[in-house]
Write a protein that binds this DNA or RNA. Structure first.
Length: 378
DNA sequence: AACCATTACAACCGCCATGGC
DNA sequence: GGCCATGGCGGTTGTAATGGT
């Protein structure tokens, strides 16, 4: 076959492709785009409540909206639908997302199916803007922790000399260059702290997002009634109510913040195979945080933040030195659990031996080396 | 106060799956 | 089986809000 034939064939194929290419669902010049106004929300909400949504393509026309049907559908599903749960994600929900993402990948719709009231879009956003980074920090922390731990073991077993100090530093510390080459971490440092989430235009002052949204109003005021006047009246009520809008602090903000501090170890955590975009050094233990379950996460959350965030190695050592403190005992147990999970476990006997040998040889204690093993960049 | 960087989230885009004809 | 319309999904973008300097 000649090259001319080939080009003809290719052209006809492309032509066919061009011809068969579906026309856009709506004329972008004729439909409105961008953020939805309260009036539009009101129209859509009222219409769907009254008539349902059998055909999204025709809906805008029937509802008096100059929007693409697809846009209406999205707005309804992601925002106006009565059973959409607003507000911040709970720890349990975030844990579920992490678990499911680990097994399903970016199957947001499937993940959303496991979280009633949450939309795939919302979950996707939370993952991309928050959870992914938190887990990244968590993972990075594991690296620091185990590096530090490793260096302590080395010191103990070799009756370290003064030269060890610098070794510890180099092992435990992440260089600036290293930090700056990390993937997807804002500001190139280790201190990612999510900002306060933005409030929706429908949020009501003094109420949580989830308490007094348009959806709840609809539920509480017989919005589902077939009586059109009732629908309209209630829709007006929604409209008026919603536009008292002012920024508020959601009731679950505390949950969010505690979760943030929970995750924001800024250098303490565990490996995750869910973050495929993160290049993993071989020596980083790659365990699945999902193994811990909600109870374990909650236990973490219950721990003193300073214990977790300031210096896990210190905490680790303190655990041996002060077993009377329940929290520290728990922490110690958790570390052991973690180590066992990682297959890097230091057994109880080894711990005792290590402690003993370290006392005998009197190396620099972790406490003394505190400044030498910074887990956070200043 | 102004500017800039960053974040969170709503919305859009394009592709794919499905079902009816 | 092919075509078409529609809905669903995941990736990406746009932008308001926020915080830091």
């Amino acid at each position: 076959m000649s090259t001319g034939d080939n080009s003809l064939k290719r052209e006809s194929k492309e032509e066919k492709k061009k011809v068969s290419r579906r026309a856009p669902c709506c004329d972008k010049n004729l439909v409105k785009r961008g953020p939805w106004s309260p009036e539009e929300d009101l129209k859509l909400f009222s219409f769907v409540q009254k008539n349902g949504h059998e055909n999204w393509r025709n809906l805008p026309k029937q509802a008096g909206l100059s929007r693409c049907g697809k846009s209406c559908r999205l707005r309804w599903i992601n925002y106006l639908r009565p059973d959409v749960k607003r507000g911040n994600f709970t720890i349990e929900e975030e844990n579920t997302i992490i678990q499911l993402h680990d097994t399903l990948g970016n199957k947001w719709a499937k993940i959303a199916a496991a979280l009633p009231g949450r939309t795939d879009n919302e979950i996707k956003n939370v993952w991309n803007t928050s959870l992914k980074k938190k887990l990244l920090n968590f993972k990075r922390g594991a690296k620091n922790y185990y590096q530090s731990k490793e260096s302590i073991s080395m010191m103990s077993s070799t009756s370290s000399s003064s030269t060890t100090t610098s070794n510890i530093s180099s092992l435990g510390k992440r260089s600036r260059a290293e930090s700056e080459h990390d993937v997807d971490v804002p500001r190139g440092d280790d201190s990612y702290v999510p900002k306060k989430p933005r409030e929706s235009c429908w949020d009501v002052p003094g109420e949580s997002k989830s308490n007094e949204s348009i959806k709840d109003i609809s539920r509480n005021s017989s919005f589902s009634s077939n009586n059109s006047s009732t629908v309209t009246d209630n829709a007006d009520q929604v409209f008026n109510h919603a536009h008292q809008g002012d920024t508020i602090r959601s009731s679950s903000e505390d949950d969010r913040q505690s979760m943030d501090s929970f995750f924001d170890f800024s250098g303490f955590g565990i490996g995750l195979n869910t973050l495929e975009e993160v290049s993993k050094p071989d020596f980083i233990p790659d365990i699945d945080p999902l193994e811990f379950g909600v109870e374990s996460w909650n236990m973490w959350e219950g721990l003193d933040d300073t214990l977790i965030q300031s210096d896990p190695v210190q905490s680790f050592q303190d655990g041996f030195d002060n077993n009377n403190n329940n929290e520290e005992v728990d922490l110690m147990r958790w570390y052991q659990l973690l180590e066992n999970e990682l297959g890097l476990g230091v057994t109880e006997d080894q711990n005792q031996q290590e402690k003993k040998s370290s006392k005998e040889s009197e190396p620099l204690t972790v406490a003394e080396n505190h400044d030498e093993i910074p887990l956070q960049e200043p």
